[in-house]
């Protein structure tokens, strides 16, 4: 469906490298997540995909069409929601939707079936100006506008940034339902915990793709075993662990530390040591890495 081959993109006459030799394959009907922090190159990648930017080198094919020569046809087949909220704040919910339907050569009625589930939730406020909507409602309206012309591919640039956890969950559920209708969906996000909701993910940092795979495969490719080390005095525990010679890596994860050790490490001994140092509540156990663990490991091994 979408193929990126060796895409490179720089800004400011080549001084800022935004995408460095990116290659990607995205299959039809997938929910694909592009995951990385701000400034990783997510927006640039999406803008190239939506034909809004030209790459410096490399080729990209969307739906069998070249992004440079066939840009008009590609533009007809995608629905795009840019980063930042971008609807007309001074137009009402209905006016916004009607406007976008019209410029995409369609009507609200024609594709109502597709947006119905989502639109129904904001319909009570259809006469309210978009600028006066709450974050979650704005997001739903933006999604409706991106969907109104029944696109084959839906591209969402950081739709959940700055949105609270509850609205984020709702949003991902909407995406899952849309996927069932046959859409190919691309989402970018800085939230690593959203990775597991995707069929396939690409981890991106500093313009480089660190890994592309199904989330569980990325997890199973984690190098070594990951241990959760837990104590109430977590900060002191971290300081102590970092001086431990067998330690390979250690990062705070919520109420625990996630650490990797040399293969020869004796964990019984380690626990006993820590106990003696005053961590009476010490708890060490092997755990399955999260995407965030994998991301950190990949970033560090790429340095």
């Amino acid at each position: 469906m979408i193929t990126f081959s060796n895409i490179k993109k720089t800004y400011l006459k080549g001084t800022v490298l935004a995408l460095d030799d990116v290659s990607l394959d995205i299959n039809k009907g997938q929910l694909f997540g592009l995951i990385g922090p701000d400034g990783a190159g997510k927006t640039t990648l999406f803008r190239i995909l939506t034909t809004l930017l030209l790459p410096d080198s490399g080729t990209a094919i969307v739906n069998g069409l070249d992004i440079i020569t066939d840009y008009k046809k590609i533009r007809d087949s995608i629905g795009y929601m840019p980063g930042k909220f971008s609807l007309y704040q001074d137009l009402s919910v209905e006016e916004n939707l009607h406007f976008f339907a019209t410029i995409f050569n369609t009507t609200i009625e024609e594709n109502y079936e597709l947006i119905k589930d989502i639109y129904i939730q904001i319909e009570p406020f259809k006469n309210r100006r978009a600028g006066k909507l709450s974050g979650g409602m704005k997001q739903k309206l933006a999604l409706c506008c991106a969907l109104i012309h029944n696109p084959e591919i839906l591209i969402l640039d950081e739709p959940t940034t700055g949105v609270d956890a509850v609205s984020r969950k709702e949003f991902w559920e909407m995406l899952k339902r849309l996927k069932l209708k046959g859409l190919t969906i691309l989402v970018s996000t800085p939230y690593m915990d959203e990775a597991n909701l995707c069929d396939q993910i690409a981890l991106i940092q500093n313009g480089k793709i660190l890994s592309v795979d199904e989330p569980h495969k990325i997890v199973s490719n984690f190098d070594g075993k990951l241990y959760s080390v837990k104590s109430a005095k977590i900060f002191q525990l971290m300081t102590l662990l970092k001086s431990y010679p067998d330690l390979k890596s250690c990062f705070a994860f919520g109420d625990a530390l996630h650490a990797t050790f040399l293969e020869t490490t004796n964990y019984e001994e380690l626990a006993q040591n820590l106990l003696k140092k005053g961590f009476e509540d010490i708890e060490i156990k092997e755990i399955t890495p999260s995407i965030e663990d994998c991301f950190i490991q990949l970033v560090n091994s790429n340095k």
Partner: peptide, 12 residues
């Protein structure tokens, strides 16, 4: 607003 991006990708 970012709406220019949407206008550009539209068939308009």
């Amino acid at each position: 607003l970012g709406t220019m991006e949407i206008l550009l990708v539209s068939p308009f």
